[in-house]
Design a protein around this nucleic acid. Structure first.
Lengths: 196, 196
DNA sequence: TCGGAAACGGAGTCGCCTATCCGATTATAG
DNA sequence: CTATAATCGGATAGGCGACTCCGTTTCCGA
């Protein structure tokens, strides 16, 4: 009766330390993968998290699974941010605000690009849930902006995603040149606008 | 007296078969790296070229050296194409023609992106010569287009390079969607134009 | 044609990285 | 506080990929 394990999720409640370690692992893995690339070794991540290698593989049966978990977390947070922007700013500016948010992330942490392009096609199947949420948010932002007349009408979600990722990639190549980065961003931004 | 070894290049003339193998290796390596990514194994390249592994390492002391040689070749050919376009088309359309040339390369062979982004920062020092040639061509194309008034005046070579690479990356994410790819390309293309 | 140097091929070495095993440690229920 | 089961951590197995060694083959000048 007092048993309130949600039957929907087959997950059992983790012990306190296990939950802590899992969270720290996700945190650290995100940092390390972002800075050192997806080729970073599992041991390095374990060291940075003050954890044995076995602990990593206990929580994530495979390195790819860890990569996927990190990616999903990123997508979820971005989707959340997108919804928040849509609610606070309104359709006229929300899409561009989201664009800036994604693109201007601190130069080193080009997460969206690293995640999507690094893990890339491999985990596309498993990220379908988070990816779908992201897709819905983008749909909403894009639709609102188009209704408001601030974004060209011939534009759909798939290319919008690609444009976000590609623009992040651009920024990687302009790390030490803030002026050039600003101009590159402006080029894409203006290209998104309605301007026949 | 009859000795006409060019003192500028310390290279000795290779034997015929060696020259043939070297050429085939570069050809095959370009294909394999482009299709399988820069993580492709040296042995795979050797197999595809009908050559022993040792032969690869005899011609290129390191895998990175091979990668670099492939990249330099690509840059040289692109620079050549750029010059040809500038001469044939004239300043009004040459930059956009070059843009299309780079971006629309057969969907699988996203070479410019694979090369620059894959090898990326690592070999930047060694590719300085080919990179400089490329930079000069881009300068010429950009300058001509700006003088003709078809490209926004606040745009310099560094961000133009990044935009080219980033746009190629976009295309990778839109492989199976030619319509979306076309629209994404149009966004960036329009962003480059002068349109205040 | 023939001799020697240049180039070749592939088996073998070495190091790194993913993933597992098992004895030690720690959280939690009663 | 104690029992016990979940969790931990480091040593280790197993595999893969870059690079080397050396006997064999191929080119090329005389």
């Amino acid at each position: 009766m007092t048993d309130q394990t949600p039957p929907v999720t087959g997950a059992k409640p983790l012990r306190a330390d296990a939950r802590r370690n899992r969270a720290r692992l996700l945190e650290v893995a995100e940092e390390v993968f972002t800075e050192r690339g997806t080729g970073a070794s599992t041991e390095e991540i374990a060291r940075h998290a003050n954890v044995g290698i076995a602990t990593v593989f206990r929580h994530f049966p495979t390195k790819e699974a860890l990569l996927e978990a990190v990616l999903v977390r990123r997508l979820e947070r971005l989707a959340e941010e997108g919804l928040r922007l849509a609610a606070e700013i309104g359709p006229t500016g929300a899409l561009f605000a989201f664009f800036d948010l994604v693109v201007d992330q601190s130069p080193v942490k080009n997460a969206f690009a690293a995640a999507l392009a690094g893990a890339g096609v491999d985990v596309r199947a498993a990220t379908s849930e988070a990816g779908r949420a992201m897709g819905e948010v983008l749909t909403e932002l894009l639709d609102g902006a188009q209704r408001a007349g601030v974004v060209r009408r011939d534009l759909e979600v798939p290319e919008l995603t690609a444009i976000l990722v590609g623009t992040c990639r651009m920024m990687e190549h302009l790390d030490g040149h803030p002026e050039a980065a600003k101009r590159a961003r402006a080029v894409v931004r203006d290209g998104l606008k309605a301007c026949p």
